[in-house]
Simulated assay, not measured.
Amino acid sequence: MDLTDKIVVVTGGSAGLGEQICYEAAKRGAIVVTCARRIQLIGQVKERCSQLSGKAAFAFQLDIADPDSVESVVEKIADEVGEVDVLVNNAGFGLFEDFVDFDLAIAKKMFEVNVLGMMYFTQKLALSMVNNQRGHIFNVASMAGKMATPKSTIYSATKFAVLGFSNALRLELRPANVYVTTINPGPIATEFFDKADPSGNYLKDLGGIVLDPHKLAKTIVNKMGKPTREINRPIIMEGASRFYHLFPHIGDLLAGGLFNRK
């Protein structure tokens, strides 16, 4: 897709992968709309996007788990920006703990953010895409949604849900020429792990397979406008997830041992 003057909306766009997707889209001439809770940070992202694209960019404060906030942002996008060409659902969080010790109030919040809020926001913007017979939706899931490991029970459950939702949505929207792509990254060197693993040991133990958000963002933006089913990174973890499903008993041993660094 020639992104010149295309409207690209990114949730969770205040930092990490979402921030880098905003910048990459802006470099291609897109009109970027960054949405997140941290208003000061998305204001900075907005300014940087405007510098990179040489055109207007927008920042709207969004609590994806709050339906009223979603309604408000959707209205602002329609009134102030225009009809969305690309939506990147990147907002989400995780926490790595044993399930028997997990605070289920946090589990509820994780589903509200990672799944239900994403669905609600997607439905609102997909309506205009279907009417226009064009558009592209990217849903950030995770390798954890393909191959669960210990201490990721709740997070993996949310990402399995994102995968199932995306797979069905892709088939439903295909006749309307609206593409749906699932992004399944392994661990990325972002502040996501400040909350998910406050000890900082997880990323250190993984070493070279930790993803660079700049490179992944470029890969995602390169796929905008192309009918792509999934983006899976790193390749070694994609191979492991295939092995996991082909040989489930051995896969359990790997997921509980070799690929478990939490």
Rank of each mutant, 00 (worst) to 15 (best):
V100R: 00
V140T: 14
K195R: 14
K215P: 00
G94T: 07
G94P: 11
N132L: 08
M110D: 00
R170L: 12
A126N: 07
G164F: 10
V115E: 01
L163Q: 03
V162E: 08
L203I: 13
A176V: 05
F160I: 08
V100L: 06
K204G: 03
A141H: 01
L127V: 14
T122V: 02
L173K: 10
P198S: 10
A217V: 04
E172S: 09
N177T: 05
N177Q: 12
K218C: 14
L95P: 03
A189R: 13
V210D: 07
M118G: 02
K108F: 01
L216Y: 08
P213I: 05
A141P: 07
Y155H: 02
I154W: 02
G164K: 06
L206K: 12
L116G: 02
D98M: 00
V140F: 12
M119C: 14
D101E: 14
N201C: 05
G135W: 07
R134I: 02
V140Y: 08
G145S: 11
E112S: 13
E191G: 10
T153P: 01
G94R: 05
A157M: 03
T122Y: 06
T149I: 15
L203G: 11
K109M: 03
A157P: 09
L216S: 12
L125W: 13
M119H: 09
Q133K: 13
T158V: 03
E172N: 06
F121W: 05
R134E: 03
G117V: 08
S166C: 10
T153D: 06
N132S: 04
V100Q: 01
A161Q: 03
V130C: 14
N201E: 15
N139K: 07
M129I: 04
K124V: 09
Y120I: 03
A168D: 08
K204Q: 14
L206H: 09
F102E: 00
A126E: 13
G145P: 13
K109R: 04
P187K: 04
M147N: 01
D205R: 10
P213G: 08
G164R: 12
F96Y: 11
K109V: 01
F192A: 11
I209E: 13
K146S: 10
S152W: 00
K124H: 13
S128I: 05
G94Q: 05
P175T: 03
I137K: 09
H136E: 14
D205M: 10
F121V: 07
A168M: 07
I183C: 06
T181M: 05
A107D: 00
D101K: 06
R170A: 14
K218S: 14
N139M: 11
T181I: 01
A126V: 15
